[in-house]
Amino acid sequence: MANVTAFLTRTRGRGRLHWTDWASYAYLALGVFLMFGPVIWLVVSSFKTQAELDRFPPRFLPYAPETVQLDGHAEPLPLFRVTDGPLAGETVAQVRRIGLTSQVVRPEAPGEVVKINRADRVPVERVKPALENYRTLFERFDFMRYFWNSTFITLTATAITLLVNSMAAFALAKYEFRGRGAVVALVIGVLMVPQSVVLVPLFMVTREFGMLDSPWGVIIPGAATPTGVFLLRQYMLTIPDEILDAARMDKASEWKIFWRIVLPLSAPAIAVLAILSIMWRWNDFLWPLIALSRSENYTLQLALNSFQGEMRTEWSSLLAMTVLTLLPVALVFAFLQKYIATGIASTGGK
């Protein structure tokens, strides 16, 4: 114990903790509580039955009533602990509830029905995750379809983005040609006007291409991102031209140089763009909301949003669906945290 205290209060060599150290750790503890708390609360809640979710004040862990299967009863019977009366202290199974009394049997003697006061019993409960919340999602709702829609859009769009942007970045980084300045200016221009302020004409253009209400209508319009071009171009500028010239001496075609030399050398920047693109696409909301109208084409985000509108009170399925939507992001984050952080910091978001 003394060791732990010594470890925790150890500072940069000067013995005791300064008050600013205490304040820092207090702030960080509050941060952990505020940042993690709500998400953990959501995840824990997603394992509760609807009855338990309606309970106020709520309990932290998901409890479910303990039941027992007895001969002569088709359904499992809920167990109660009797607090008063002749059976006090015993655990009984409730057969039926009539008004203020309840008919119970002892599990050892299932045939012998006893009447007790409802006020004299408390339910026997134990911590038990309500997995049926998740099961309903797959049985009653087409969760897999939305999941697939999102996955398809995310992966296809990222592949197209990587290919198209790296080609453009290669041209802008490694060739001298007339009009290069104009192209760079155009890219900056596009950077200034985000998708969210050209919704009406974008809708029309997408409609003219017949891509409305199809995954392609979500994939194609955002495939060429100015951020991506910039990120890759900046990185490719650091690749020495001598390597390219050496390859040219060996009669490599320009496409081969791009594909065999420049792309592999740009792998770190490409990885960053891939992670960013996956995140943007998976979480994208406004444009899919406009471009997709039939619910069978919905992405996970759209489905989740329309789902919360439809069932205002049925939180049990809604929470489970939120957790499943959050899960891929959490997994990616757990493994790639460092890369994501540097990637986002180096591009300024979007």
Partner: peptide, 14 residues
């Protein structure tokens, strides 16, 4: 090399 990107920019942004 620029063409695919410029086509997409032109059509869906510019």
């Amino acid at each position: 090399f620029l063409l695919p990107n410029l086509l997409l920019f032109g059509t869906f942004a510019f």
